[in-house]
C-alpha cells in the first residue's frame, strides 16, 4: 500500500538526517584528526594529542561553568576575569603572603566562589539582568586584580607598592598542579578537566538538581510554580561558575608560575564559544557539559593543527568564528522546519 511505504520511508529519511545532525561534530572531529594526520604525521602522536587536551583544559573548565549558568537561564560574562583574578590572587598569596600550595588553592577557590556569590546576589537579590551584572563584575575584577600590587605583575622578588621586596615565591608543590603528569603521560590539568566534566555531567544530566537548572532556564515561572527554589538555584549556578573559573585560573597560575596582568584575556570568548559549539553536539540545542568539553576540544584540535601547518595566527580567530557560526547554524537552522 502506498500509505504504508510513505509512512515507513519518511521516518527513515528523517532518522538519517537526525542521526547526521546528532553526530555531525564527532564525524567532523574525526575527519579533522585524519586530515591533520595526513598533512602532518607528527600531529597524531600521543604527546601532541595530550598537549591539545592540556591546552583546552582551562577553556573547557570555564566553559562548563558558563554552560551551567546558561542552562539556568543566565550568562556569566565574568569567568575570564575571575580566572585572571585567580591567577593574580594565587600569585599574591604565595609571593606576597607566603602561603603554601594547599592554603593558596583553598583560598583562591573560595575567592572564586565568593565572586560567584556576589554575581548571583546582584542578579537574584538586586535584580540586575544577568548579562549586565556579570559584565560589570568583569570590569570590576579587571581593575580590582591590579590594586594589591599597584598594577605590577607578580613575580618572586618583585618590588611592592610600598617599596619593600616580596619575600615569598611560588610553592614548587603548586606548580605540580599545572605541570605534572599522571603516570607520566596524562597532564594533570587534563585529569582535572575530566573529573570536572564527569561530575558536572552527572549533576546536570542525571540528578534532579540538573533537571531543575534546565527547567529554570527553560521556563522560570513554570519551575517556580512547580515548587523549585529558583533563586537558590540561580545563585548556586553562579557560585559553581565562579569556583570553576577560579580553578581554571589556578591551573593557569601553576602553568605560568607568575601573576600576569594580561593573563586570561581571551578565556571568556573561548569558553563561551565552546559552550555554544556544544549546542550542536548530539543535536541537543541547549547548553550541556559534554558538548562544551567537546566544543573546546574541537577548537583546540583545529588550532593545534593549523599552527602545525604554519597557518598565521590571524586565521585562527577566523576559523574559531567559522566553527561557531557553523555549529550554531547546525543547531538552530538545519532541519528545524521538521518541527
Amino acid at each position: 500500500m502506498t500509505t504504508d511505504t510513505s509512512q515507513k520511508s519518511a521516518p527513515r529519511a528523517s532518522n538519517i538526517a537526525e542521526t547526521a545532525r546528532r553526530y555531525a561534530l564527532f564525524v567532523l572531529l574525526g575527519l579533522m584528526l585524519l586530515g591533520f594526520w595526513w598533512a602532518q604525521p607528527a600531529f597524531i602522536n600521543s604527546a601532541n594529542l595530550f598537549s591539545i587536551l592540556q591546552a583546552v583544559s582551562v577553556v573547557a573548565i570555564l566553559g562548563v561553568g558558563v554552560s551551567i549558568t546558561m542552562s539556568a537561564g543566565g550568562f556569566d560574562l565574568s569567568v575570564g576575569s575571575v580566572a585572571a583574578s585567580a591567577v593574580m590572587a594565587a600569585s599574591y598569596a604565595m609571593v606576597v603572603l607566603q602561603l603554601d600550595a594547599v592554603s593558596t588553592f583553598i583560598l583562591v577557590l573560595a575567592i572564586g566562589a565568593l565572586i560567584g556569590l556576589a554575581n548571583g546576589l546582584l542578579i537574584v537579590k538586586v535584580g540586575v539582568p544577568d548579562l549586565l551584572a556579570t559584565l560589570s563584575t568583569m570590569f570590576l575584577l579587571a581593575g580590582l586584580q591590579l590594586i594589591p600590587t599597584g598594577g605590577r605583575s607578580i613575580t618572586a622578588g618583585m618590588v611592592l607598592p610600598d617599596g619593600s621586596t616580596a619575600k615569598g615565591a611560588y610553592d614548587p608543590a603548586f606548580l605540580l598542579l599545572g605541570r605534572s603528569r599522571l603516570f607520566d603521560i596524562v597532564p594533570l590539568p587534563v585529569v582535572i578537566m575530566a573529573v570536572v566534566a564527569v561530575i558536572a555531567w552527572f549533576l546536570m544530566e542525571r540528578t534532579r538538581f540538573g533537571r531543575v537548572f534546565y527547567a529554570i532556564g527553560g521556563n522560570e515561572t513554570a519551575a517556580h510554580l512547580a515548587g523549585a527554589p529558583t533563586k537558590a538555584y540561580r545563585l548556586a549556578a553562579y557560585i559553581i561558575s565562579g569556583t570553576l573559573a577560579s580553578l581554571g585560573g589556578l591551573i593557569i597560575a601553576s602553568r605560568v608560575g607568575r601573576g600576569d596582568v594580561s593573563a586570561g584575556n581571551s578565556l571568556l570568548l573561548d569558553a563561551v564559544a565552546a559552550s555554544l559549539i556544544g549546542f550542536a553536539v548530539l543535536d541537543k540545542r541547549r547548553p550541556h557539559v559534554l558538548g562544551t568539553v567537546l566544543g573546546a576540544i574541537f577548537v583546540g584540535v583545529l588550532l593545534n593543527g593549523l599552527t602545525m601547518l604554519n597557518a598565521p595566527y590571524y586565521t585562527q580567530d577566523f576559523v574559531k568564528g567559522a566553527v561557531l557560526v557553523g555549529a550554531l547554524a547546525l543547531t538552530f537552522g538545519l532541519g528545524k522546519r521538521k518541527r
Binding site: 544530566e205 533537571r211 527547567a215 532556564g217 513554570a222 510554580l225 515548587g227 523549585a228 540545542r285 541547549r286
Partner: peptide, 24 residues
Amino acid sequence: QSSLLPPETPGASIAGTIALPHLP
C-alpha cells in the same frame, strides 16, 4: 507560560513534565 518547558529542555517530555514538582 505556567507549566511547560521548551522542547529542547531536559525534562520537557511527558515523564519529565509530570515529575518536575515531585523530584525532591
